[in-house]
Amino acid sequence: MASKKIRVLIAKPGLDGHDRGVKVLAQGLRDAGMEVIYLGLRLTPEQIAQAVLQEDTDVVGLSSLSGAHMSLFPKTIKIIKEISSKHYLFICGGIIPQKDIPKLKEFGMAAVFGPGTAIAEISKFIQASVVEAR
């Protein structure tokens, strides 16, 4: 099992086009030995959920810097959970005020990575969590 590569899907729900963070993260996680699928911009929660199902990923990473995270992230998680019984690791990043973090975690978000997070911190978290789940 340990030799199987971790599959990560990263997407930007909504209309936000700030993609520096997701692109840097995609490359960083690839360099850390993971398979990364970056879905791109302007996606609805439904489109992301379909892609997660098709790609059979371990991790779902969501990014938004426009302030729409409280409506789009929980909705995406909810739809994925409705259509798949698999256990996914949900993580997110963006401009997310501290007070929103507990609420996001209630919806099933495992971790929220804000500005200034090192890529190694995210990849370590993913590795530890996915290995535990497997």
Binding site: G14, L15, D16, T44, S66, G67, A68
Partner: peptide, 9 residues
């Protein structure tokens, strides 16, 4: 597509 984005940024 505007859901969640209205009046945000």
């Amino acid at each position: 597509m505007s859901a969640g984005e209205v009046g945000r940024c």
